[in-house]
């Protein structure tokens, strides 16, 4: 992943100049660093839990088929931001969202958008693996069943293969999912998320509850997934973000998006001093 330095239009918190037109970064050599079409874009996103503000005017673009990572100290709003993208914050009664979140140009918080329909295009994997107490097969099939989509063995197999789990469970598809190990359960959750063929997969600290070997498998998996899906991942592990993401967004305490750009630039030469201090560990 050799990416050269390049100017990125969305560096400062208050930039509202992000446009939904495809972004092409002008740079000399490396092909990897070309930012493709923007899939999701937020504009001046503010989130309040009651009177407390969790996100401050966050404007961010997420390019398709890349891994975009959000890092930042605890409580800086990165999970809140993630949950805005698929309107999971709707389930929290005290949450209030202002601003726009655009998916392929359409504002997800408009009146006529059905959150349930939305979540069928934007899938989510959570921090703690949460397989249903059903068989492995039924877990993978669940999403398709509730969406009235067809379910057959082939689709289930494909999803499990994509999640690098097929070989380990192909003989025990009828067994309860709760008998799998933590790492396997998390890969099962990923399989069931991609079984419905979403456009975007959101991951909220997917490996933080796992041991290093399982974490490594998940990281490899995420890199593969980015070939087919747009992946947005929240992680408190900076090194993980450095390893697997193409773009990194840094949130700091108070819900402020301080910098966003190609991972290589953010980790080698960040624009903001605050980001530099955070990354080098000089402040939390």
């Amino acid at each position: 992943m050799s990416q050269d330095n390049m100017t990125d239009p969305e560096q400062s918190t208050n930039a509202t100049a992000t446009v939904s037109a495809p972004e092409v970064d002008t740079d000399e050599s490396s092909i990897d660093s070309t930012v493709g079409r923007t899939v999701i874009e937020t504009r001046d996103l503010d989130v309040y839990y009651g009177d407390e503000q969790a996100l401050q005017e966050v404007s961010l673009s997420i390019p398709e088929r890349q891994v975009t990572a959000m890092i930042g100290p605890s409580g800086c709003g990165k999970s809140t931001f993630l949950r805005c993208l698929n309107r999971m914050n709707d389930l929290v009664e005290t949450a209030r969202v202002e601003g726009e979140v655009l998916l392929n140009g359409r504002n997800l918080y408009a009146e006529d958008v059905d959150p349930v329909a939305l979540r069928r295009r934007i899938g989510m994997v959570f921090q703690q693996p949460n397989p249903f107490p059903k068989s492995i097969y039924e877990n993978v099939a669940y999403g398709r069943r509730v969406q009235n989509k067809s379910v057959d063995d082939e689709i289930v197999e494909q999803a499990l293969r994509r999640a690098a789990l097929w070989d380990e469970v192909k003989d025990q598809l009828d067994q309860s999912a709760l008998e799998l190990s933590g790492g396997q359960q998390q890969r099962l959750c990923i399989a069931r998320a991609i079984a419905v063929d979403p456009e975007v997969v959101l991951m909220d600290e997917p490996a933080s509850a796992l041991d290093p070997v399982a974490t490594s498998k998940i990281e490899d998996l995420i890199e593969e997934l980015a070939e087919d899906y747009t992946v947005v991942i929240v992680t408190h592990n900076m090194q993980q973000a450095a390893r697997i993401s193409d773009r990194t967004a840094v949130f700091l305490t108070g819900g402020e998006l301080v910098e966003v750009g190609p991972t290589q630039r953010v980790f080698e030469n960040p624009d903001s001093d605050r980001v530099e201090d955070y990354i080098t560990g000089k402040f939390g």
Binding site: N86, M88, L91, V116, A117, L118, R119, R120, G123, M124, V125, F126, Q128, N130, P131, F132, P133, Y142, G143, R145, V146, Q147, C189, R192, A193, V196
Partner: peptide, 27 residues
């Protein structure tokens, strides 16, 4: 019934009714 199961169901695009019927009630 742990809340994570409900969240998981919502995350897969299920409505509240579907979640209650398929995940919460059996549990």
């Amino acid at each position: 019934v742990p809340d994570e199961l409900r969240q998981g169901s919502y995350g897969l695009g299920a409505s509240r009714w579907q979640t209650v019927r398929n995940v919460v009630l059996p549990e």
